[in-house]
């Protein structure tokens, strides 16, 4: 039973007179607990795919089943609920709220979903401890290093115990060493059962995943979990 099942996904953008097929004829299945790296040149549709998986965007055609439920037909409020309960996002630019402390940023998803304050407090304390941020609880984002910021963002993404983590170039704003630490952190979360989908430009980091997806012009050019295509595309 796949966690994610995409069939015939199309995503078309209209820019003036020209149309861009950001995703075209995409079929994809991801099992629970997988670790998937999405790679490909700039503009190949990686972010578009991730936004779609995260229910931030809707396809123009095709179906998306999440945990065997067709989520493309859900109302915006129902989709918001799915995001809140099943999906965690990690962004390249961290996206922390600048006026809130590390602890408050981590608590944000629980506040939005209406969890009681006592529950929030204990979960935030646990998360701060798990991510080595005990001494940074009261610091605002501008008082944190890049690696610490991304750790806060990952703590926030996992605080609701989602089924999957979607990370769009999570190491893009970090130096090599810090980036590897962050990847190791995400991988340890994956080992504990969270499905991890990471978009990356970095071949080395991408190679660490158990499954690699290569995108090109909105198509899935290569999927390491499938046997090599009998009709390889030119240049492969």
């Amino acid at each position: 039973m796949p966690l994610i099942e995409l069939k015939g996904i199309e995503r078309v953008f209209h820019l003036g007179d020209s149309t861009v097929h950001a995703l075209a004829g995409l079929d994809l299945a991801i099992e629970p607990g997988e670790y998937v790296a999405v790679m490909g040149p700039s503009g190949s549709g990686k972010s578009t795919l991730l936004n779609l998986l995260g229910l931030l965007d809707r396809p123009n055609a095709g179906t998306y089943h999440l945990e065997e439920r067709d989520v493309t037909t859900l109302t915006p409020n129902e989709q918001a609920r799915v995001r809140s309960e099943r999906i965690g996002f990690v962004f390249q630019s961290f996206h922390l709220v600048p006026r809130l402390t590390a602890a408050e940023n981590i608590a944000l998803p629980m506040i939005l979903s209406g969890l009681p304050a006592s529950e929030r407090k204990s979960r935030v304390e646990q998360a701060l401890a798990n991510f080595g941020l005990e001494n940074r609880a009261g610091h605002r984002p501008d008082q944190l290093s890049g690696g610490q910021r991304q750790r806060v963002a990952i703590a926030r993404a996992t605080i609701m115990q989602p089924a999957m983590l979607l990370a769009d170039e999570p190491t893009g704003n970090l130096d090599r060493h810090t980036g590897e630490e962050v990847m190791a952190l995400l991988e340890s979360l994956n080992q504990n059962g969270v499905t991890l989908i990471v978009v990356t430009h970095d071949q080395v980091l991408g190679a660490r995943a158990r499954r690699q997806l290569a995108m090109e012009d909105g198509h899935l050019k290569h999927d390491s979990s499938l046997p090599p295509s009998p009709f390889p595309l030119p240049g492969q």
Partner: peptide, 16 residues
């Protein structure tokens, strides 16, 4: 705007 996008990604419905 970025913060609003984040809130939506974190699962805040429009009315919130």
């Amino acid at each position: 705007t970025g913060e609003i996008g984040l809130l939506k990604a974190l699962g805040a419905p429009a009315h919130t």
